[in-house]
Design a protein around this nucleic acid. Structure first.
Lengths: 178, 178
DNA sequence: TTTCTACTTGACCAAACGGTCAATAAAGGA
DNA sequence: TCCTTTATTGACCGTTTGGTCAAGTAGAAA
């Protein structure tokens, strides 16, 4: 179990940053959640920032890759993509992790910006492949439109808590895309 | 000039929070920018949080109201709405203030959440009125779609810095709405 | 068993943070 | 002019913050 300290640290950091924001989160919270001491964390990460970057790389990016490559490999990719997006309120209870982190950190730190931009490219490519698989043209601009609408609608959902309208927006988009 | 301290404070706070986030910003920065002492600020605002709420109410919300009521009163409202949105990268250099603040603070503090939700309602209503003025049906769900796409596309723009594609996304939306 | 490395402890630190306060100054009205 | 209210000063405070470090422990390899 000792070997998993690093993973437990990233898990807890992801959750804490996700809820409270990177700058608003404090390390002590993460430490007590994992049940270790400060020095132990600094053995794996040389700073809070490094921990943040690891969270982006190993959780935010990885979660996106896992989720959307799986959809890409399925039979009805595009349909499943919209199904997955429509269920976002259930899974992403504090919003889109990539969007949250981006809004907060993009102009605060350049290393965050670089990593978050790279993560977005991966996201767009995966959605683009799903669109392309359906034989649709302009897959990259369609992917952008899907992601934009999804992210924006998710923001609105978190502001007005109206799940029905959130899903309706995505369904309209789905009908329009195909 | 002395009477404008409160306004100068909110101006500087808005800019600082906009760039660095609410939690990431420190009061000393704002104070030195305005050129006053700490006690002077605490004469007008009883806490950093009160200053943050005032920024939302008196800058973020007000700016939205000013900008979109003006468009609503113009001749070609809907066209001008899309023109204004397309020029967002020039005016909103760090993203959408409402979106940024929402992503950061929605699940951190309930007073922020309430105020930000109210601000969104105002935003949606104004865009809804612009849509309705054009004689289009379903103005409220069309307003949601416009805002969602706009917010999402703006997020993408800040991640990939591609202004051409940002504008294209909004132009596609414009063509599809009408 | 010894040794080397990876990990963990817990006390410690300096700096930065948000916030307070009594004293003072300036403005405005009577 | 005097007086009251509003605004400003600047020193001060307690807490929290991210981060350090010397010491010790556990585990694996030899």
């Amino acid at each position: 179990m000792k070997k998993d300290t690093r993973e437990a640290l990233i898990d807890s950091a992801f959750n804490t940053f996700y809820k409270q924001g990177f700058q608003g989160a404090n390390i002590a919270t993460i430490l007590s959640e994992v049940g270790i001491n400060k020095g132990s964390m600094y053995h794996f990460f040389k700073s809070k920032k490094e921990l943040g970057l690891a969270v982006i790389k190993e959780r935010i990016e990885q979660n996106l890759v896992n989720k959307y490559t799986k959809i890409l490999e399925e039979k009805e990719s595009l349909k499943n993509l919209f199904d997955a997006m429509r269920s976002a309120p259930e899974t992403l209870v504090f919003g889109c992790p990539l969007n949250k982190m981006s809004q907060e950190m993009l102009y605060v730190d350049n290393d965050f910006k670089k990593l978050l931009s790279e993560t977005y490219v991966i996201f767009e490519n995966l959605v683009g492949q799903i669109v392309q698989k359906e034989g649709l043209e302009d897959s990259s601009s369609k992917a952008k439109l899907i992601i934009a609408t999804y992210e924006g609608a998710l923001m609105i959902y978190h502001l007005n808590q109206n799940k029905v309208e959130f899903r309706a927006t995505l369904s309209d988009l789905e009908n329009q895309i195909a």
